[in-house]
Design a protein around this nucleic acid. Sequence first.
DNA 1: CTGTTAGCGCGTTCAT
DNA 2: ATGAACGCGCTAACAG
Lengths: 339, 339
Amino acid sequence: MGNVTMKDVAALAKVSVGTVSMSINDSPMIADDTKRKVLEAVKKLNYKPNPYAKSLSLSSSRSIGLLVPGFINPFFGELAQFIQHELDLRKNSLMIGITNDSSEKEKKVIDGFIDHGIDGLLIVPVNSDHINLNHIYDLNKSKLPTVYITSYYKGFQENCIMTNLSKGSYLITKHLLDKGFRSIVLVSGHSDLVPFKERIEGFVKAFDEMNLKVPNNSVIEASGMNFKDGYNAIQDFWKKNKPEAILAVNDVMAMGIISSLKAIGVRVPEDVVVAGYDDISISGIQETPLSTVKQPIENISKEAVSLLFDLIEGKPGIQDPCYFDPSIILRKSTNRKIV
Amino acid sequence: MGNVTMKDVAALAKVSVGTVSMSINDSPMIADDTKRKVLEAVKKLNYKPNPYAKSLSLSSSRSIGLLVPGFINPFFGELAQFIQHELDLRKNSLMIGITNDSSEKEKKVIDGFIDHGIDGLLIVPVNSDHINLNHIYDLNKSKLPTVYITSYYKGFQENCIMTNLSKGSYLITKHLLDKGFRSIVLVSGHSDLVPFKERIEGFVKAFDEMNLKVPNNSVIEASGMNFKDGYNAIQDFWKKNKPEAILAVNDVMAMGIISSLKAIGVRVPEDVVVAGYDDISISGIQETPLSTVKQPIENISKEAVSLLFDLIEGKPGIQDPCYFDPSIILRKSTNRKIV
DNA sequence: CTGTTAGCGCGTTCAT
DNA sequence: ATGAACGCGCTAACAG
């Protein structure tokens, strides 16, 4: 099956292995006639090039690695899907690694990928309280083509393709302020981390622009980024605070928040309006369809893969993050007139 | 960087390349003293084995391919996560391919995977009206270790690890019947396909067991398996029918169904109860937490990967599907006493 | 235009 | 226990 080699093809086609190789790779130096002869032999023998030998010879495996926190949040699944599609177009394969938002896991996954001979790396940075960047430093030194996607690590902002997160928060906050809401809470993460720092900036900017003071305690740092973290954050918070609006840093947390409110008898949007971030597919079909900030992940995926292949081909790369503009999607969860 | 080779290590350690190779692979024939010397040189030079050469030599890339319909339905993301974890334990990498429930795409992805030299394949079968199995037939002939997961293709039931789908439908249907519901509708897919055929069997069995007649038109064939398909199926259906209960073949469709009902003013569970299938993470934190059938995907993933490695090692394989028992998770969406 | 041959880097005999 | 040499299958440089 898989063990018919070029030699066999060469023998059948009565040419040399070199000729077979060039024919298969459609080299212009081979006569069309010879090519056809070779291709025929290939068909007849059902010859498949040995990928390992090919990789060894070319020093390339035509596969790249993608690191994501995990797939509990469907956002990363959708992202992976777009990236997969882009790689497909380039006849490359995608290796998936899950970091679980842990630096240690991230290091292990990267090491594993390198052991497997990937040509390049796409990284969604880890979000956690305890981030160790030693391996990122090493990675940077190693010159393995790497693109950061949706965010970057402080101090490593080269080759990053992401949403203008600040702008997204700004837009949704401004929308709520324009509607008359004033007591707005942002359920975020550790403010040292880029994705949260940027979102908070946009949030604050919207208030500043209208000469409004950002209310006290209006930024909550949740302990994680999943449903339950949104759920828990609000269970505690609501006892002492009754804001008019709640913003979450992603859609799944927003869903957790809505569930949490519902569980204690608070209605959305009647009693409090809620918005998320990402615009994952399910957001639009929730019972209370979710207003959110749409990250243009299709364009981001396209651009990130394109940049990665530039790097692989030895082209220069970019020094600062390339930001894509988000847009806001207004649905029922924020649809209330304020009195 | 990556271009320090065994030769260099051998030179530094003053041994031959053969000795280096055996030392690295911890061969018992090498003196401990020599090993240490070699390992030291490896450290000092930061030597990494070239994965391409290694693959060529061993005819193995230590990577396996997983085919899924896509990640819009988070179920497959969660499945991928478990599989990834299992492969991790075995120092193998995971390649992801997305079929989009299309046979053509499936064929392309498989070809791509083979071109990249995967050691084995894990396939979630395509669900579509137009299934072409020629490539599956070829795959079967090629002897590439392959395990089917969550379902199988008719005629190819070897090496399949899946949920006892029939039992799941049976359990949830029986639960509703026991509660007194009689007019129950199953929103399913093409009944020729294994996953739907099996679910329908369980559905019918529950009625049979209680000597009840399955109501007419109680199985709807939706055109797809996502939110919108559930949504659409009900929008049409509800005009003419008002069942007491609706079962969906997966959770995201159930969510679409609930949204659909809500949009026309029908309450869940007050006016109609709804249940899904899969028990994805978000199901429990929906506004109306979803009753569902839990597929034991962690065990399924473990077993599937284990079987795949058995096959890779040349062990025999299994002739018939290995079924794992599901359980039902009862939440608010079915929580109503019937009068 | 095509044949010949030398690597690519590692694993693995076969002698010693 | 270790060194020398060959083979894995393919690409590319060189000769003709």
